[in-house]
Amino acid sequence: KCPLCELMFPPNYDQSKFEEHVESHW
């Protein structure tokens, strides 16, 4: 789950994509 927007991600979600998403909040 994204700590900034509460959006849920699947357990096998690509880590780099997840980090990209988190950085999109900044």
Rank of each mutant, 00 (worst) to 15 (best):
E6C: 14
P10W: 00
L7V: 14
E23Q: 12
N12Y: 03
F9A: 04
F18H: 08
F9V: 11
S16C: 11
C5T: 05
K17P: 01
E6W: 06
E23S: 06
S24G: 09
K1W: 02
M8Q: 06
H25Q: 01
Y13C: 10
E20L: 08
F9S: 06
H21K: 01
C5I: 00
L4T: 15
C2S: 02
H25I: 01
P3C: 12
L4I: 13
D14L: 09
D14Q: 09
F9E: 05
E20I: 01
C5E: 02
S24N: 14
F9R: 04
K17C: 02
M8G: 14
H21C: 00
M8K: 10
C5Q: 00
F18P: 06
P11L: 10
P3F: 14
E23L: 05
W26V: 15
P3V: 09
E19M: 02
E19S: 13
L7R: 14
E23M: 03
E20H: 11
P10V: 02
E6Y: 06
H21E: 00
W26C: 15
V22G: 05
S16Q: 00
P10E: 09
K1R: 07
N12A: 08
F18W: 02
S24T: 07
H21I: 00
S24A: 12
F9C: 04
M8A: 14
Q15H: 07
C5F: 00
L4S: 15
Q15M: 14
E19T: 11
M8I: 12
E20Y: 08
P3Y: 05
H25E: 04
D14H: 09
P10R: 03
V22W: 04
Y13N: 12
F9W: 04
E6K: 02
H21T: 00
Y13K: 15
V22R: 11
C2F: 02
W26Y: 08
F9L: 02
S24K: 13
P3G: 11
D14R: 03
L4Y: 15
E6V: 02
V22C: 11
C2I: 01
E23C: 04
E19L: 07
P3Q: 13
Q15S: 08
V22Q: 01
E20W: 04
E19F: 07
L4A: 15
M8W: 12
C2T: 04
C5L: 02
K1P: 02
C5P: 03
L7C: 06
N12P: 09
W26L: 12
C2K: 00
H25R: 02
H25W: 00
K1E: 05
D14T: 11
C5R: 01
F18K: 10
S16V: 11
S24I: 06
L4K: 15
P11T: 14
Q15Y: 03
E19D: 14
P3I: 13
E20Q: 13
P10D: 09
H21D: 00
Y13H: 12
N12W: 01
C2A: 01
E20N: 14
D14K: 07
M8T: 13
E20K: 11
C2D: 09
M8P: 06
P10H: 08
E23D: 13
P11A: 12
K1C: 09
F18E: 11
P10T: 07
K1I: 05
S24P: 03
H25V: 00
P11M: 06
F18C: 10
P3R: 04
H25G: 01
P10A: 02
H25D: 03
E6M: 06
K17M: 08
H25S: 01
L4Q: 14
E20R: 10
S24F: 10
L4F: 13
S16I: 06
K1N: 13
E20C: 04
K17L: 09
H21W: 00
S24V: 06
W26F: 12
S16P: 12
S24H: 13
C5W: 01
Q15G: 11
E6Q: 09
L7E: 10
H21G: 00
E19G: 05
Q15L: 12
K17F: 08
N12C: 02
E19W: 02
S24L: 10
F18D: 03
D14N: 13
F9Y: 10
S16E: 05
Y13D: 09
D14S: 12
C5H: 03
W26D: 15
S16T: 10
W26M: 08
F9K: 04
E20G: 08
P3A: 13
Y13L: 08
Y13T: 14
C5K: 02
Y13A: 06
W26K: 15
Y13M: 08
V22E: 07
Q15P: 11
N12E: 07
C5M: 04
Y13W: 04
K1Y: 06
D14C: 05
C5A: 03
P11E: 10
E19N: 14
D14W: 05
Q15E: 07
C5S: 03
K17G: 13
V22Y: 05
E6A: 11
P11K: 03
E20M: 11
C5G: 01
F18Y: 08
P11V: 05
F18M: 14
K1H: 07
E19A: 09
L7M: 14
L7Y: 06
P3K: 08
E6G: 09
V22I: 06
Q15A: 13
E19R: 11
P11F: 04
E6D: 04
N12I: 06
P11I: 10
E20S: 07
F9N: 10
E19P: 03
E19Y: 04
Q15T: 08
E19I: 10
E19H: 10
C2L: 03
H25A: 02
E20D: 15
S16D: 07
L7N: 01
K17I: 13
E19V: 07
F9T: 09
M8R: 12
